[in-house]
Structures are given as C-alpha cells and as structure tokens.
C-alpha cells in the first residue's frame, strides 16, 4: 500500500467512522484543534487504524500523533516494518 492509498483510506475512515466532515480534512489538520477529535476520539481513531490497516499501535506512539499527516506517517512506518 503506497502513501496515497494510505491517505485515501485514512480519509475514508475519518469520515465514515469518526463522522468528520470531508471538507475539513487536510494533511496538516490537527485532530484536536481543527477536527474536534477529543481524547476519546483519539482512542476511537486508533481502533480504526488497527482494524483497517492490520497494524498494532502502542499507546505511547499513538500519543505522538497530532495531525492527519502524522497518522499517515505512522501507518506507513508500521506497514513497512
């Protein structure tokens, strides 16, 4: 899966499973400030990432994610390893 595929799949997840408005999505969009994803929403996002990309994301790595682009980076790294 290349980066653009990850991006597109992640965007779909954010829209379908977290209910985020597609128009608000951008690589530099911050989950908390721009997308209104609170601490509970971050947990939900992690579950969605793990289920849909088949990766395992420990809490301490999850805490580093603040933007959509960083989430893509993390998934890309996990898939490569």
């Amino acid at each position: 899966m290349d980066r653009s595929e990850i991006e597109s799949k992640l965007n779909d997840l954010l829209v379908d499973e977290l209910g985020i408005d597609r128009d608000a999505l951008a690589q530099d969009a911050k989950f908390e400030e721009d997308l209104d994803v609170d601490s509970l929403g971050v947990v939900e996002l992690l579950m969605a990432l793990e289920d849909n990309f088949g990766v395992k994301i420990p809490d301490e790595e999850a805490e580093q994610i603040t933007t959509v682009g960083e989430a893509v980076d993390l998934v890309e790294k996990k898939l490569a390893s």
Binding site: L40, G41, M47
Partner: peptide, 10 residues
C-alpha cells in the same frame, strides 16, 4: 476489551 468503544460508558 480492546475494541470496547471509548464512548461506550458515556
């Protein structure tokens, strides 16, 4: 338990 929703309790 790892898939129980964080919104479950609220």
């Amino acid at each position: 338990p790892h898939r129980v929703s964080p919104y479950g309790i609220p």
